[in-house]
Deep mutational scan, measured.
Amino acid sequence: MSIQHFRVALIPFFAAFCLPVFAHPETLVKVKDAEDQLGARVGYIELDLNSGKILESFRPEERFPMMSTFKVLLCGAVLSRVDAGQEQLGRRIHYSQNDLVKYSPVTEKHLTDGMTVRELCSAAITMSDNTAANLLLTTIGGPKELTAFLHNMGDHVTRLDRWEPELNEAIPNDERDTTMPAAMATTLRKLLTGELLTLASRQQLIDWMEADKVAGPLLRSALPAGWFIADKSGASERGSRGIIAALGPDGKPSRIVVIYTTGSQATMDERNRQIAEIGASLIKHW
């Protein structure tokens, strides 16, 4: 058993032996400061991975655009179909130039040979490839079927209504393609630790998130040596930015963190910096 498999397999085991986890309101002070700095709403939640207890939250039940963070949920739905014998990670999917949409750094290189379902999930999560996400959405029946999958998990909040890139429109008060921090954190925890997916599929999902290559300026920039993080970021119109993550010290995840912001006029660099500073406060007061 690899170190990674050891880590995921023991998450339920550690729940019975973990020390009490204490919240630190200092992080919420930073979240509120980020709102002031960005001139935008910020949603935040910090969840204990083992118990599911909410440690801190700010606007946990307000809607925010999901942006590309939905791609983790999408690959969770794909893995659920794999577990049920309805899909194979090794199945190759062929597509054409007409299928390519904006920001497809991986799929645009494989027009001649296509990509496997496994490769598409990797591209969608680690590189946020939009065509990969659309191709995967097609395999499960489209955005409405992803919403149905989430409903069956008990998440009646999170919804996907459109495809890439239209889902990134982020119109104020538009509930399409949105979630709430509390709903996203709970759903992510179920995917990573619950019985919905097999152990192998849970491991695969967290491996893809751990290999994320496009979230460096966010929480990863504040991470001390030896800490673990598996994450997925997102960005969209109207100053929207977000990240969902499982992270913790000693090389294993122990908390879920979800951060969303929307409605800012700030630059992408400034949005990144504010999220990184929230992460730094979280780690300092861990």
Rank of each mutant, 00 (worst) to 15 (best):
I278A: 00
I93E: 03
M153G: 07
R92S: 08
N98M: 13
A16Q: 13
E277G: 08
L10G: 10
D129N: 00
R91M: 04
P249S: 04
S80F: 13
L196V: 15
K252L: 09
L137R: 01
R238Y: 13
T187V: 05
D250E: 13
G52V: 03
V101I: 14
F17I: 13
L73K: 02
F6P: 09
L218Q: 01
Q88M: 13
L223N: 02
H156R: 10
N272H: 04
D269W: 09
G216T: 09
L19D: 12
R81V: 05
A235S: 12
K252A: 12
A9H: 12
L146S: 02
R176K: 09
W163E: 06
A222R: 14
E169A: 10
G85R: 10
P165I: 06
E237C: 07
A84I: 11
Q97I: 14
V82M: 05
L79A: 00
E210Q: 15
A16P: 10
N50K: 13
N168K: 02
G142A: 02
I3N: 13
S240H: 08
C18G: 11
T186K: 14
D250L: 09
V42L: 09
E166A: 10
A200G: 14
G226D: 09
N173G: 10
K53H: 12
L74E: 00
D207A: 14
R220S: 02
L247S: 02
S96C: 11
S201I: 09
A245L: 02
G226V: 03
E237R: 06
I243G: 00
P143S: 02
I259R: 00
A84H: 12
I259V: 09
L282G: 02
M115S: 04
G52I: 02
I256F: 04
I11Q: 07
S254F: 07
P172S: 10
A124I: 00
H151L: 11
T186Q: 13
S254Y: 07
K232G: 00
K190E: 11
N173I: 07
T186E: 14
G279R: 03
S51G: 06
T178D: 01
A215S: 15
N134R: 01
A148V: 13
V82D: 03
I171T: 15
P224W: 00
G279A: 10
A170D: 08
R63C: 03
I275L: 08
A280G: 09
Y103L: 04
A15P: 08
S254T: 15
A266Q: 08
A245C: 08
G90A: 15
W227G: 02
L10M: 15
G216A: 10
A215I: 02
R91N: 07
Q265N: 14
H5A: 15
D33V: 11
Q88A: 12
Y260W: 02
R92W: 08
I283H: 04
A245E: 03
G43D: 01
E175G: 07
L137Q: 01
Q37E: 11
L247H: 01
S233G: 07
D177M: 02
I256V: 09
T267H: 09
D231G: 04
K144V: 12
C18F: 06
T198R: 09
R241H: 01
T261M: 15
R118W: 14
L146I: 06
A124C: 09
P165Q: 02
P12N: 13
T69D: 00
E237L: 09
T138Q: 14
T138S: 15
P253M: 14
I275Y: 03
K53R: 13
R220T: 02
R189M: 11
R255A: 02
A222P: 07
S51N: 07
S254D: 15
E277Q: 09
D174E: 07
A246K: 01
L74T: 05
P224C: 02
I243R: 00
E166H: 12
R162T: 04
I244V: 13
N50I: 14
H24R: 08
P65S: 06
E61Q: 14
A15R: 01
K53N: 11
L160T: 08
R238D: 15
E210L: 08
G234E: 02
N134L: 00
A183D: 05
W163T: 07
A16V: 15
S254W: 07
P105Q: 06
G154V: 03
F13A: 14
V257I: 13
A170I: 13
P20L: 05
N98I: 12
D250M: 10
L136S: 00
M127W: 13
P172M: 11
V214C: 09
D155E: 00
P65V: 04
A211R: 13
R273I: 09
I283L: 08
K53P: 00
S80W: 11
C75P: 00
T179Q: 00
L167I: 10
E87M: 09
F13I: 14
Y260H: 03
F6A: 09
G251F: 07
E87R: 00
D99Y: 09
G251N: 12
E166P: 02
E61A: 12
D161G: 01
S254R: 09
L89K: 03
P224H: 04
A211M: 10
R81G: 05
T126R: 07
I243S: 01
L137D: 05
R59L: 01
T187R: 05
K30V: 11
A235C: 04
D250S: 13
D212N: 13
R255P: 00
Q204A: 11
N173W: 11
H285V: 05
P217V: 08
S96R: 15
T147D: 04
K144H: 14
I125H: 00
E61F: 14
R241K: 04
T179I: 03
G141R: 04
G43Y: 00
Q86H: 14
E164S: 03
G194I: 05
S240P: 05
V106R: 06
